[in-house]
Amino acid sequence: MGGFKATLINEIEKLYKKKKIIVAAALALIFIIVGQLATIALRNGFGVRTVGSMEFPILVLSVVANTIIPLFAALITIDSFSGEFSQNTMKISLTRPVTRFKFFTAKLTAIILFVFLNLMFVMVFSVLAGLIFNSNTLTAYGIIRIFISYIVTIFPMIILVMMIIFFSNLINSGIGVFFLSIIVFLGFKVLGILFSDYSGIFFTSMLDWYNLWIMSVFPFIKILREFLLLCSYGIILFTGGFYLFDKKNF
């Protein structure tokens, strides 16, 4: 366990030093500010009824969960695997007294923490933006709905990260992994639209599964079905990604 902890701390430090994290946070903050200003302009300038302070963070989540966070999760994941492969720094990291399984798991955990912190960052600032400009709709129930929505979104994000890790160990080129990830991501999105009856089997459609958690009538069976499907994706991608990583010669 000590080897895993030390490796995890080292991977977190490496991610912390990457400028992509700052850029991701800045873009998310800019989006929140612009979104809130647009909401105010529509309400005051045109008299259009807009979302309240409790609905605004959910609206922000629906956008960033399908754009900014997946994009930067992909960039960070590619840097952590393909980037280190090409720079031959992976070999140095593996000289530490830690198994490849622990090393692989530590990298995955560090990336998941990055995604989770991004979600929490967006949640906090979107809630604050909503409260500053429209505090009348603040309720404890609304806060709980927002918190649950952001927390459960981490699960499909983990599957996305695992998919990119799998591609990173399958293809040596970081650029190739990036474009392949985009093609697969958009491909699943398009297939989900064209075959709406079967959209539930594509993990990209589950980026919005937080909507199930905040419905007035809790759809337990549907949530359980999608959770088991996410687990299946996770097992397959984790096993495949580690198998390819373990077979690499450094």
Rank of each mutant, 00 (worst) to 15 (best):
220 F>H: 07
240 G>V: 10
246 D>W: 08
66 N>E: 14
32 I>E: 00
50 T>Q: 15
99 T>L: 08
1 M>Y: 11
121 F>E: 03
98 V>S: 06
89 T>V: 07
101 F>W: 15
139 T>R: 08
215 M>T: 14
106 A>E: 11
202 F>M: 13
215 M>Q: 15
149 S>K: 01
106 A>H: 11
98 V>W: 04
184 V>H: 00
85 F>A: 04
173 S>W: 08
60 V>P: 04
170 L>Y: 13
3 G>P: 09
204 T>V: 12
227 F>H: 05
192 G>D: 10
54 M>Q: 07
122 V>Q: 02
175 I>K: 02
146 I>M: 12
184 V>Y: 07
49 R>W: 07
111 I>G: 02
63 V>W: 13
43 R>C: 00
146 I>Y: 08
159 I>Y: 01
214 I>T: 13
197 D>R: 11
224 L>Q: 05
56 F>C: 10
151 I>A: 07
32 I>N: 02
6 A>E: 09
161 V>Y: 02
248 K>M: 07
179 F>L: 13
194 L>W: 10
235 I>S: 01
8 L>S: 13
225 R>C: 00
219 P>T: 12
112 I>A: 14
189 K>E: 09
29 L>A: 14
61 L>M: 09
243 Y>I: 14
158 I>E: 01
19 K>P: 03
242 F>M: 04
244 L>A: 10
36 Q>T: 10
212 L>H: 07
228 L>R: 00
103 F>K: 01
21 I>P: 02
27 L>G: 04
204 T>E: 08
168 S>H: 05
91 K>F: 15
32 I>K: 00
178 F>E: 06
250 F>H: 05
41 A>K: 05
213 W>F: 15
116 F>I: 11
27 L>N: 05
198 Y>R: 11
218 F>Y: 12
27 L>I: 15
48 V>P: 10
35 G>V: 12
191 L>H: 05
136 N>H: 13
146 I>H: 04
194 L>D: 02
91 K>P: 02
201 I>P: 02
218 F>M: 10
249 N>R: 08
21 I>M: 10
132 I>T: 12
225 R>N: 11
154 I>Y: 00
155 F>E: 02
28 A>M: 14
132 I>S: 07
217 V>I: 14
167 F>S: 05
16 Y>P: 00
237 L>M: 13
180 L>C: 08
44 N>L: 12
18 K>F: 09
250 F>A: 08
50 T>N: 10
21 I>T: 13
52 G>W: 03
173 S>V: 08
216 S>H: 09
27 L>D: 03
26 A>E: 03
29 L>G: 04
117 L>I: 11
40 I>G: 02
92 I>N: 09
156 P>S: 06
31 F>P: 04
67 T>D: 07
132 I>L: 14
237 L>C: 06
33 I>V: 15
210 Y>W: 13
90 M>R: 00
228 L>W: 06
71 L>E: 11
243 Y>E: 03
54 M>P: 08
211 N>S: 08
60 V>W: 05
156 P>I: 12
224 L>K: 07
75 L>M: 15
90 M>A: 03
97 P>C: 06
159 I>Q: 04
119 L>F: 11
145 R>I: 05
36 Q>H: 00
110 A>V: 08
200 G>D: 12
121 F>S: 04
11 E>D: 15
235 I>R: 04
170 L>K: 14
88 N>W: 05
83 G>A: 12
193 I>Q: 11
65 A>Y: 05
237 L>V: 06
5 K>L: 15
103 F>D: 02
